[in-house]
């Protein structure tokens, strides 16, 4: 346990010292100012627009952190023999768990800072906007969006762990992690468009069955409707919320377990 905590703390210090992480930390302010600037171009629902761009910013920030900082850290460990320095003192599982814990701690710090910036901006905006134009939006709406982004980025982390466990170099790790993440973001909405009534009436029966099968295999893990409900200050549909959490948790558990199993057998 001590070894795990020591290596996790060491990993966090390593991340905090990384220039890319510092750039991401500073970009929280840029995202906040950008959201405020864009929302000023709109007429009525300016806080909704602010939240839209904060949601985009938070998701991008967390995804870039995973694809650049986390993948970089794991790739450097696996390809430059750094993991080999730790492994005589602990099992592979403990080593990977400690590294992942450090990465998650870095993510939590980054998202906490982003949530604080976003909450301050939205609170200020709510104070200066007539109530009729804010309809149900509350100062903690950015915190809800940050929670959704946290769950999404943990899914991206599980994709990174899975990819890094078998890929052989930094480029391969970043490339495959990015492709899988892009698919995870895009596939649900593409399938949703394909399962619309207009498309289904135009395609042959067997194709429709195939599309429905893919629809069941890859449930919507983007939370698009929930994010829309939050930015409009509407109640989040409980069924969609439950499905979102369950599908994300399912992806995280399956990919992380597969990643740990493959890592235990890979050559270092």
């Amino acid at each position: 346990m001590n070894k795990l905590l020591t290596l996790a703390a060491f990993s966090l210090r390593e991340i905090l010292a990384a220039p890319a992480y510092r750039v991401l930390m500073s970009s929280t302010i840029v995202i906040g100012i950008g959201a405020m600037a864009i929302s000023n171009l709109f007429l009525l629902e300016t806080i909704k627009v602010e939240l839209d761009f904060l949601w985009l910013g938070i998701s991008l920030l967390a995804t870039v952190y995973m694809l650049v900082v986390a993948t970089g850290l794991l790739a450097q460990d696996f390809t430059q023999g750094i993991a080999y320095l730790f492994l005589p003192h602990m099992s592979r599982q403990i080593y990977l768990l400690a590294r992942v814990s450090g990465i998650v701690a870095g993510l939590l710090l980054l998202l906490a800072l982003m949530a604080a910036v976003a909450t301050a901006i939205v609170t200020w905006g709510l104070h200066h906007t007539p109530t009729a134009q804010t309809h149900g939006i509350v100062w903690w709406s950015p915190v809800m969006l940050t929670g959704m982004a946290l769950l999404q980025s943990l899914t991206v982390l599980s994709i990174v762990i899975f990819t890094c466990s078998w890929a052989s170099g930094l480029v391969e790790m970043i490339l495959f992690s990015t492709v899988f993440t892009g698919l995870a973001y895009l596939l649900p909405s593409v399938i949703q468009a394909m399962t619309s009534a207009e498309v289904m009436t135009q395609v042959p029966g067997w194709t429709a069955m195939l599309i429905h099968a893919v629809d069941y295999l890859f449930p919507d893990m983007t939370g698009a409707q929930m994010a829309l409900a939050v930015v409009h200050g509407l109640p989040v549909p409980s069924t969609e919320l439950a499905w979102f959490v369950v599908s994300q948790a399912g992806y995280i558990m399956i990919l992380t377990a597969a990643g740990f199993l493959i890592f235990a057998r890979r050559d270092l």
Binding site: D52, W55, Y185, L186, S189, A193, A224, A227
Partner: peptide, 12 residues
């Protein structure tokens, strides 16, 4: 389909 989870920003 392209906007994915960022439908609100795409509408903006």
């Amino acid at each position: 389909a392209l906007a994915g989870p960022f439908a609100g920003a795409a509408a903006d």
